[in-house]
Amino acid sequence: MIFYVVIFSILALLLVASGLYAIIQKDLLYAVISTGVISLILSVMFYLLQAPDVALTEAAIGVALTTVIFVITIRNTTRFEDENDNNKVK
């Protein structure tokens, strides 16, 4: 069972790390991708917690659709949190 212990701790670390990254990162595109990663890890975690229904939902909606609408919004607004940075890339 040490396998599960390791997996859980790695997943938890990844979860917190990507959560922090999503909030701290100034480039919104990376932050959004990071939320997608959160959803992906969550989906795995749900599966390990014996909730396959929830895992499936999180995978389809959280990973795919939510990320996509975030990306579309970024395309329609700005890419950087500090809006002066927008002129750097493009």
């Binding site: 999503a22 909030i23 919104l28 932050a31 959004v32 939320t35 975030f70 919004t73 970024i74 607004t77 949190e81």
Partner: peptide
Amino acid sequence: KHLMKIVI
């Protein structure tokens, strides 16, 4: 302060 960040 960025609205996108708040939604995230």
